[in-house]
Design a protein around this nucleic acid. Structure first.
Length: 584
RNA sequence: CGGGGCGUAGCGAAGCUUGGCAUCGCGCGUGCUUUGGGAGCACGAGAUCGUGGGUUCGAAUCCCGCCGCCCCGACCA
């Protein structure tokens, strides 16, 4: 591809709206353009990178027996009503009516459709297992998009679905995907860490997210550098020390005027926050009031609370009226004397005797509150939010908290969708069984952005070989001084374009094509753009390089530079199978 | 949805406080010179100042509404 013909433009100045390096560089180098909030066009360069990422994923999915297909972006709402998600999911899902006044939705994901296909086609255990995947557009009307391509509203995702006879089969499919993902991210040049995660809106029993550490990441990861424990903070267990043996002291009401927060209470009484109990009130989607009790120095983890209490429709902070209706007083609240509420007590608070807790009366607290004697719990469970420095739940080593970006996820769905939609097969026993499913996603655009995050310097992008839009950026200089420069550049460029695709670029037309900066620009402009665009190899041909014996080859990522004789350059770029001229 | 910021030529910005000819750099076009690290000179094109209303002799500038974008938080496979 001649750069003079390429549809792109580099920007000399950083766009005002871009903060993350990947966003800034993809914009400046002409890979993407923004259409609206969370909506991006992929320009030819960005499209080629995305297609190469797609190809890596395709190869690894095929390697575990995946079969590629394609499912629609527009779905009838009735299908989503069957699974129950039509009403469960909020404004994040786009809905509209077609001309026949039928309710339709724009796909956020494809569990329903794949399950519909299964109930149509699979009837016997002999047809299982099967692993299906596709690359398809999703739309999620996020409350807030951010970070360039990191969090967008419309995006292409590889989603795959495993369909097995039983839990054993699902387990095999799950770990097959786990392995495939490890290989995919390694090939993409990403250090992705699998962490235990919440099952969220997918439902299911086991889930991992593959996370790339990044200061702009939206997720918080709890990591142990001693034993390797890793979890999303949403689900990270907190280690609870053995319950205290201290004897219970008599309950005592004390006046605490104006002390409505733990900090004020602790300061007023001159005690540590850890000697108090904190009550937090939530209203569940089903209308229940949930009262969560944690030790005063800790915080409630809403995901863990929601899972522990078996809440389906999510949690929102309770209103003052709702709290009072259950016999409690905001600011001076506790579970003592509470009624008509589900009380969930964290293990740490349950095991700490004689806490100071609210008296459910304005201006008063209670000393020496003890679970069992003074209030009851519907449930004692870990609902504590993990913090940096906490003891690892596995090995007790101090934990670290890091930000991460989710580049992929794997979920055990079980029979959540097959049961709801009636996707069953006849087993060897002659009985109908629901198909046991798993769901596995990788967002393409987000991965492209993460690759740039991991592979750039102050000058620009430095693509890994596996995903670069073109392997080589040919820079010709001094064509007016030396006619051979243009002749040789044309020969190399045209020769590479005519060559058969390089091994590993199957299905990718023009896989051996190189980029040639044939523009009438000064050398400075050409070099600067070459470094910004980030092809793995920059090949310079000029009177000077010819005098030195050939072309100059620079490895973009390392800056390592060698002079390559013309014959070797031809062998490398035009004739198939020649290795790159230098190591890294 | 809460808090903050921004919207002026393709890009980046100044001008707004204190109303009075639309400004600068880059980029773009033409010509000449230049060609190993974002070249020089000359000429030139390009802006409903996000949008609607109001105040005023006069609004990019002051007032009100709306739209859009970014950041933090809430939210979120």
């Amino acid at each position: 591809m001649r750069l003079s013909q390429l549809f792109f433009a580099t920007l000399r100045d950083d766009p005002a709206d871009a903060e993350m390096p990947s966003h800034r560089l993809l914009l400046r180098a002409g890979y993407v353009r923004q259409l609206g909030s969370g909506l991006y066009s992929l320009l030819p360069l960005g499209y080629r990178v995305t297609k190469r990422v797609e190809q890596v994923i395709r190869e690894e999915m095929n390697a575990i027996g995946g079969q590629e297909l394609e499912m629609p972006v527009i779905h009838p709402a009735d299908l989503w009503r069957e699974s129950g998600r039509y009403d469960q999911i909020g404004p994040e899902m786009a809905r509209f009516k077609d001309r026949g006044d039928r309710d339709m939705v724009i796909a956020m994901t494809h569990e329903e459709v794949v399950t519909d296909l299964l109930r149509d086609i699979v009837h016997s255990y002999r047809q299982l297992p099967v692993r299906l995947y596709h690359f398809q557009t999703k739309f999620r009307d996020e409350p807030r998009s951010r970070g360039g391509l990191i969090r967008v509203r419309e995006f292409v995702m590889k989603d795959s679905y495993s369909c097995d006879r039983d839990d054993e089969g699902l387990d095999a499919s799950y770990w097959a995907h786990h392995g495939a993902y490890v290989r995919i991210f390694e090939r993409l040049g990403l250090d992705a860490i699998p962490v235990a995660s919440d099952v969220g809106m997918m439902g299911g029993s086991l889930a991992h997210e593959f996370m790339v550490l990044n200061p702009s990441g939206e997720d918080l990861l709890v990591l142990c550098d001693s034993c390797g424990f890793s979890a999303n903070r949403q689900v990270a267990a907190v280690r609870v020390p053995a319950a205290s043996e201290a004897s219970q002291l008599p309950l005592e009401e004390i006046e605490t005027p104006g002390a409505t927060t733990i900090a004020e209470l602790a300061a007023f009484l001159g005690i540590d926050a850890a000697a108090t109990a904190k009550a937090a009130f939530f209203t569940a989607g089903d209308g229940r009031l949930i009262t969560a009790i944690v030790r005063g120095d800790r915080d409630v983890n809403e995901t863990k609370l929601s899972n522990a209490a078996g809440v389906s429709g999510g949690l929102r902070p309770a209103t003052v009226e709702e709290i009072r209706a259950a016999g409690m007083e905001p600011g001076y609240g506790s579970a003592v004397g509470a009624h008509d509420t589900t009380v969930v007590v964290d293990g740490l608070a349950a095991g700490t005797p004689n806490l100071v807790a609210g008296a459910n009366r304005v201006g008063y607290h209670l000393r020496n509150v003890n679970l069992g004697r003074d209030y009851r719990a519907d449930l004692v469970s870990d609902i504590d939010n993990a913090r940096a420095g906490d003891a690892c739940p596995v090995c007790a080593h101090p934990l670290a908290l890091r930000n991460g970006i989710e580049v992929g996820n794997i979920f055990k769905l079980g029979t959540r969708y097959s049961a709801a939609l009636g996707a069953t097969y006849l087993g060897e026993d002659g009985q109908a069984h629901p198909i046991v499913m798993g769901s596995y996603g990788i967002g393409l655009g987000r991965n492209v952005a993460c690759i740039v995050e991991a592979h750039h310097d102050e000058k620009g992008i430095a693509w890994p070989d596996e995903v670069a839009p073109y392997p080589v950026h040919l820079v010709s200089i001094g064509t007016n001084k030396e006619p051979r420069v243009a002749e040789l550049a044309t020969e190399l460029h045209d020769g590479a374009a005519a060559a058969r695709p390089r091994h590993g670029a199957a299905g990718f037309p023009g896989g051996r094509e190189i980029l040639w900066d044939d523009r009438d620009e000064s050398p400075g402009v050409k070099f600067t753009d070459a470094e910004l665009l980030g092809m793995p190899w920059i090949v310079t041909i000029s009177p000077r390089s010819l005098a030195a014996g050939g072309v100059e080859v620079t490895r973009r990522a390392t800056g390592q530079r060698v002079v390559l004789p013309l014959e070797e350059a031809r062998a490398w770029l035009v004739e198939e199978g020649s290795p790159p001229p230098t190591g890294d």
